[in-house]
Computed example of a mutant assay.
Amino acid sequence: MDNLLISSVYFKKFKELSEYSDRTIKSYKSPLKELGVFIKDYGYNSETLDFDKFYYCEDDGEYEPIDLEFVDAYVEYLKETKQTKTTIGNHFSAVKSFFQFIEDIDLICENPFARYPTSFHYRALKNRALSREESDRLLKAAALLDPFLLQYFVLILLQFTCGLRSKELCSLKLSQINFDLNIIVIDNGQKTYASSVRMTPALKKYLQVYVNHPYFLDWLGGTMNKELFFSKKKPLTNTKLNKIISEIASKADINRKVTSHDLRATMAYLMDQNGFSIPAIQRQMRHKKSSTTLIYLPMKNRLYT
């Protein structure tokens, strides 16, 4: 089967218009091919790759371009799968250079890779976590915006305590929640292995109220195999999820863009502030390596690296 990125117009124009030698083009092919596989695993469904219409929201029929959240997930993937800093650097440099080229020839409108320093793997990235005070305001705003069902409140609380990746959150089903063991099983995320996260007592309490609400039971329709979060009788998409988070952040007077991945970073920060160890945070974030967890803890990163 053709690789999504290698068979795209982006790579064809890269080969055709760049001044690189055939040998250099060949060296780009391996990391770009791997990126194409990652894009599919990330949840991109179209047969034709379009970075300016990377996310699609069925609710309003709108498209959004590839964004910083995707790059964050890709950085995490490199940290998890590559053995050395050199390999990580080579892969990321090739991808960043490729995106710079396709932006230069106007094939894409936005280039989120441009915001990352090529040497990101040698030092901590900018802290994207919300402060404790901002986190409290976000939870309060979520409750105010959705006081009847409290879906927004549960969604934000879940992210602050479990830190799911956006794809995992959108596809999360009631059948994955085990109230007896206080865990949520993650078996259909962007990773290929099953794992679990622990629920706090507060999350368990509000989740039980939420899943027994008449409106949620009506959405469920007698089956456990439906998504936990929904909008207008449809499961959340990545675009809709981030629009909801943006709306809540605006209500909370947080004057910066807030994404689902920022809430994942906030979970790591809050756990660290509450005295949890790096291995404990690593387990909740489901990272294979502690070095990946340290990406989310800039101050700790400086101490450990």
Rank of each mutant, 00 (worst) to 15 (best):
V211G: 06
I183A: 11
N90Q: 09
E133W: 04
K126V: 13
L181R: 15
S166Y: 05
T86H: 05
T292N: 12
K232R: 13
G222R: 13
F276G: 06
L217C: 08
D50Q: 11
Y304M: 14
R264V: 08
L107R: 05
E110A: 12
Y304N: 14
T192P: 05
F92Q: 08
N238H: 10
E133L: 12
N188Y: 04
D67M: 03
Y215F: 10
M224Y: 09
K29E: 13
E64W: 04
S290K: 09
P117F: 03
T259F: 05
A73Q: 10
S260E: 03
T259Q: 06
Q284H: 03
F120E: 00
D50T: 06
E110H: 07
E47V: 10
E247N: 14
N45C: 04
K226V: 15
L144G: 12
L181T: 11
N111T: 08
Y304L: 13
F70Q: 01
Y74W: 11
P201L: 12
T161H: 01
Y10G: 04
T259N: 07
Q176E: 07
V154A: 00
G189Y: 11
P201F: 07
R165L: 08
E168I: 02
K140G: 00
T266W: 02
S8L: 13
P214F: 01
I278W: 02
D72Y: 07
F113T: 00
L270E: 06
N274A: 15
S97R: 08
L68H: 03
L68E: 07
E34V: 13
Y215H: 09
L17R: 15
A114R: 14
R283C: 06
K243W: 00
K257W: 02
